[in-house]
Simulated scan of single mutants.
Amino acid sequence: MKRERRHFDKEFKMMAVNLCLSGKPTREVADELGIRVELVTRWKREYHQYKEGSFSGHGNVNMTDEQKEIARLNKALRDAQEERDILKKAVSIFSKNDGKFSNS
């Protein structure tokens, strides 16, 4: 039988991290909350990396300001390359002179 996946809200995760930061061992916090030690360890790592931006939920990726800027620039580059490719095709189509539309 398939076990249903448990979901933890941001407040629960912050509480677990705060208990660890207050000096309690990670294993003890996990045992008290009835969760795996690996979860608490991952939540601590995410908190140390993103601070208050941690635990955005639903698979949303937390990014630093630099990572956000890189992602924005990569998107702009892809858009510009796509526009360039379209224009190249259009130029090649319109530059073909087969005499159909000219009065010569």
Score class of each variant (00 low, 15 high):
M1A: 14
K2C: 15
R3G: 10
R3F: 14
R5D: 15
R6E: 15
H7R: 09
H7D: 12
D9V: 00
D9W: 00
E11Q: 06
M14S: 00
M14W: 10
M14F: 10
M14Q: 07
M15A: 09
A16Y: 02
A16I: 06
A16E: 01
V17G: 07
V17P: 04
V17N: 02
N18H: 08
L19W: 13
C20N: 09
L21K: 14
S22W: 10
G23L: 08
P25Q: 13
P25D: 12
T26G: 08
T26I: 15
E28N: 06
E28P: 03
A30V: 02
L33D: 00
L33H: 03
I35D: 00
I35A: 04
I35Q: 02
I35E: 02
R36M: 07
V37L: 07
V37I: 09
V37W: 01
L39I: 11
L39Q: 05
V40C: 04
T41Q: 12
W43Y: 00
W43A: 00
W43F: 04
K44D: 05
K44N: 06
R45A: 11
R45Y: 00
R45C: 07
Y47F: 14
H48K: 14
H48L: 13
Q49V: 05
Y50A: 06
E52V: 02
G53K: 08
G53M: 02
H58E: 13
G59V: 02
N60V: 10
V61Y: 02
N62F: 13
N62I: 10
M63G: 07
T64N: 06
T64V: 07
T64W: 11
T64L: 08
D65F: 13
K68F: 02
E69C: 14
E69F: 14
A71N: 10
R72T: 05
L73W: 12
N74H: 10
N74F: 01
N74M: 07
K75D: 08
K75P: 03
R78M: 02
D79P: 03
D79S: 09
A80T: 11
A80R: 15
Q81P: 05
Q81V: 11
E82S: 09
R84N: 10
R84I: 05
L87S: 12
L87P: 08
L87D: 12
K88S: 05
K88C: 04
K89T: 13
A90R: 10
V91R: 07
I93V: 14
S95V: 01
S95P: 01
K96N: 14
G99A: 12
K100Q: 11
K100C: 10
S102K: 15
N103C: 11
S104Y: 08
